[in-house]
């Protein structure tokens, strides 16, 4: 039973990290209908920025709490900056191009960013400083649920809650929903669509950066290549839940996280990534609209 609970919590932790990344995919897809292939790289850059900032601060002897806050802020700020810049350079000029063009451009951007980090930093795995302390009150259950699992679950729940409020009640949230429904119509009623798109990239990138920092601190190492796999898995989660739907992305991520956790725990750990990819292929074949998505009908 302990093993089951351990896997359950492992899966939930995994799933909530996927959710932080998948939200970026799903929001961008909902608004401009593009698979933002470089989103995994944004997550990687977020993890790297927080790694650099946290290490520098710890060398200069800052207290742990200050390090965590500053590193998280820095990761969010720089990742959002990257997100907005990528959108401006690689996607905005192609907004009216045929559908494949922005996708190819996004793939190019993803390869470019990976190699940019590889060349500017290193190709080695770097040890990520432990930002989450082992809590004393978690001692009795520490062999099943780690402190970082708890922190990740609480943080992501809070972030999701804040995001829901933002999208439901604020002005920019309403503008985002309107743009997602019908871009031309939103423009006609006076919404600055360019700004809404930028805001979407900012929010999505900041969430991904937070996810990157949390998972890097949880696993304890990072590398320039982590974004590729995480990106694909988060995309799988977004599709599983129904791309474009925000609750769908969260549900899909949790399902994917649990599936992976139980499959590696009970079946085989060699094929960890194969499960995610097979799930992706199966969903797209049998239910391309996802769990909570609406089937897209095309009118001629």
């Amino acid at each position: 039973m302990d093993y089951f609970i351990e896997l359950l919590f492992g899966g939930l932790t995994r799933g909530s990290i996927y959710a932080l990344i998948a939200l970026g995919y799903t929001m961008v897809y909902g608004i401009i209908g593009l698979i933002n292939f470089a989103h995994g790289e944004i997550y990687m850059i977020g993890a790297f920025t927080s790694f650099i900032v946290a290490t520098v601060l710890s060398i200069y002897g800052f207290p742990l709490l200050a390090i965590v806050v500053i590193a998280a802020l820095a990761a969010a700020v720089w990742s959002s900056a990257y997100g907005v810049t990528i959108e401006k350079i690689a996607y905005r000029p192609l907004r009216h191009a045929p559908r494949l063009s922005p996708l190819i451009s996004a793939i190019g951007m993803s390869i470019f960013l990976q190699n940019y980090v590889l060349l500017a930093q290193t190709s080695d795995f770097l040890p990520f400083p432990a930002l989450i302390p082992e809590f004393a009150f978690m001692e009795p259950v520490a062999h099943i649920v780690g402190s970082s699992d708890l922190v990740i679950l609480i943080t992501t729940t809070l972030v999701m809650f804040a995001l829901t409020l933002l999208i439901k009640f604020t002005r920019i949230g309403k503008a985002m929903r309107a743009t997602a429904q019908d871009r031309t119509m939103a423009m006609l009623v006076g919404i600055n669509v360019d700004r809404v798109i930028s805001a979407t990239f900012v929010i999505g990138s900041a969430l991904a950066a937070l996810g990157g920092m949390l998972i890097a601190s949880h696993i304890g190492q990072i590398n320039f290549y982590i974004g590729f796999l995480a990106g694909i898995k988060a995309f799988t989660a977004a599709v599983l839940g129904g791309i474009g739907s925000i609750p769908g992305a969260v549900l899909g991520s949790l399902v994917l996280g649990l599936t992976e956790s139980f499959a590696t725990g009970y079946v085989s750990s060699d094929y960890e990534d194969v499960f995610a990819f097979s799930l992706l292929v199966l969903i797209l074949i049998f239910k391309p609209s996802g769990l909570l998505g609406k089937a897209e009908t095309k009118k001629v």
Binding site: I89, A90, P93, L94, A97, S101, P102, I104, S105, I107, G108, M109, S110, I111, F112, L113, Q114, N115, Y116, L119
Partner: peptide, 13 residues
């Protein structure tokens, strides 16, 4: 590889 990535973006634009 940096150049390959850049080529994909630049050519598309």
């Amino acid at each position: 590889m940096l150049a390959f990535g850049a080529i994909l973006v630049i050519m598309m634009i």
